[in-house]
């Protein structure tokens, strides 16, 4: 084996490409989500056709984002995949348990439970899981 003198590889280039693609799909999904949410309120008011179209576009772009995320995860190396898996398992598990407990709490204490709170919590737990995973293998 010759002394390898390259600092980059096709694998690393693919990771970069997949990350950029995922970022673009995520940004596009957020824009279409905002359009579907705020379009009926501020742009086209009560047109059901346009609202339905915006929701369909949001779903289609969301599907693209899911596929981009799948490609991104499949492109990672095995340790990175393990870190991702652990973080996602933690986020999903806590999201399920705490999310349902949160919904039940709304029965006990009257307040407006919102799914966005659960999503924010899951995102924060995912980030904490990623941080813990990266630290673990450092």
């Amino acid at each position: 084996m010759n002394n390898p003198n390259t600092e980059t590889s096709t694998w690393a280039a693919n990771i970069t490409k997949n990350t950029i693609q995922l970022a673009w799909w995520t940004a596009a999904w957020l824009v279409t989500m905002a359009l579907a949410k705020f379009g009926p309120l501020y742009i086209w008011e009560s047109s059901k056709l346009l609202t339905g179209l915006a929701i369909l576009i949001n779903l289609a772009v969301g599907l693209g984002m899911i596929m981009a995320n799948k490609r991104y995860l499949q492109g990672l190396d095995e340790m990175q995949q393990k870190i991702q898996l652990n973080a996602m398992a933690l986020s999903l598990g806590v999201g399920l348990v705490a999310g349902l407990a949160y919904a039940n709490l709304a029965i006990l204490v009257p307040f407006q439970a919102s799914v966005s709170h659960v999503i924010i919590m899951m995102a924060l737990i995912y980030l904490a899981g990623m941080f813990a995973g990266i630290r673990k293998y450092q």
């Binding site: 002394n3 003198n5 390259t6 590889s9 694998w11 340790m79 990175q80 293998y137 450092q138």
Partner: peptide, 20 residues
């Protein structure tokens, strides 16, 4: 006399994975 980064390129993994 290879660096972790060079080995990572050859193995098609990240340098962090080689280190771990």
């Amino acid at each position: 006399d290879w660096t972790q980064a060079q080995l990572a390129v050859e193995l098609e993994v990240s340098r962090q994975t080689v280190n771990a």
